[in-house]
Design a protein around this nucleic acid. Structure first.
Lengths: 212, 212
DNA sequence: TGTACATCAGTGAACGCGCGTTCACTGATGTAC
DNA sequence: TGTACATCAGTGAACGCGCGTTCACTGATGTAC
């Protein structure tokens, strides 16, 4: 047997710290996603290889492959939200605040297209979309924290007399879907003679948020 | 051996008519797509089973799995275009013509979500997006025939004084991306309290095509 | 008209692969006495 | 302080499966003579 240069160097966690492997597994899945560019590349075995563990070890921390994907998606939603919040400039101008948030949304989608894809370009699993949302907050609510920022941004513009919006929620829905469509199509139809992305973003925000 | 009730009933094509199997293969792939709801379900073996042939028989007509998918996508593009063209009412009103075309786009996406997904929710393959579009029409051009209808629809409104658009191409790009985003998100985030789809479509068309 | 033959339209068996999942297990580590 | 033991954090081998692809083949059908 030839000397195995890739011999396992990983030392197992100490007693009581086994839960640390969970984060290592998610991190490994995210590395695979970034490297391969597609969610399909995340398999139990590929994640185990990337994490340097045996495949069955994953079952101590995740029920199945889908549970790993869910964890990756949750992380991505939080990253998007954080990127938008971080974009807020100290200036108190509500129009500028709305625009910078939308620019951050675009920037995130362009900088991390694979992560962005995992957010919305995926079948809604049963666990994620309960048949009846009831009155209580549905499980996907924390994933849409970024949308609340958008609603608030339009409402702020309207309150300051900078937007003619009378229904910030509906206008935010329009703007969100439009932005999602733009980043998706720009990514999936790259050879098309798209107008400059800055122009598209600007016009979408002005027209759909009814800026005056 | 128990009597095989699923015995092959298919009779092979006559000499010179072998090319007919090509269409049967594509039709089988489309049935699988519709039934399973995901492109991944289209495999060489599943298509062969659905078509009632042996797996290797496919190689006489398609280089590989991707070639089957490309054929399915081409069909879907043509169906979308036909649906939009068919929506044209005899009335000569340009605003009504634009709206009805957009409604047909939405209706197609809602009626055939899986087919719609195959159009734009897929990685652009190398064959489909040549590095340099050059001056000549790129290979995906026939796939975007529907977009030309949209540009023309906005231009007609502008010419009739019903739209303030000064750049129908750019405004059509905005409207297209917005509509794509709306149908995508409505499909992928079904539990969300979306405004009525009619309202969203109407507002998108009016604001992005700058109807007056 | 009959017959040999080339071609066409597929088939059946096999290959190696990576997958998700299961099972019994191992060896280090902390704890009870 | 020493030692037996329970627990924890994983492992290694194996399973059956469906996949894409290859290879040599078969049998019907049209054609040349």
């Amino acid at each position: 047997v030839i000397t195995d240069m890739t011999a396992k160097t990983r030392t197992r966690n100490r007693r009581g710290e086994g839960v640390l492997l969970r984060d290592e597994i998610v991190a490994a899945a995210e590395r695979i996603l970034e490297r391969e560019g597609t969610e399909e590349a995340i398999t139990l075995r590929s994640v185990a290889r990337e994490a340097g563990i045996a495949a069955p070890s994953i079952y101590s921390h995740f029920d199945d492959r889908q549970a790993i994907l869910d964890a990756v998606v949750d992380n991505a939603f939080e990253m998007l939200r954080a990127a938008i919040v971080a974009s807020k400039s100290p200036s108190g101008d509500p129009v500028e605040a709305l625009l910078s948030g939308c620019r951050a949304y675009f920037a995130f989608a362009e900088a991390e297209p694979t992560r962005y894809k995992t957010l919305f370009n995926r079948p809604a699993t049963a666990a994620e979309t309960p048949a009846v949302p009831e009155g209580a907050p549905p499980p996907w609510q924390h994933r849409l924290a970024a949308f609340e920022i958008l609603v608030g941004g339009i409402a702020n513009c309207a309150a300051a007399g900078r937007s003619a919006s009378t229904d910030p929620f509906a206008d935010a829905a329009l703007l969100w879907t439009a932005m999602h469509g733009a980043v998706s199509l720009l990514h999936y139809v790259p050879g098309f003679p798209w107008p400059p992305v800055d122009h598209m973003l600007n016009e979408m925000v002005h027209r759909l948020a009814r800026l005056t």
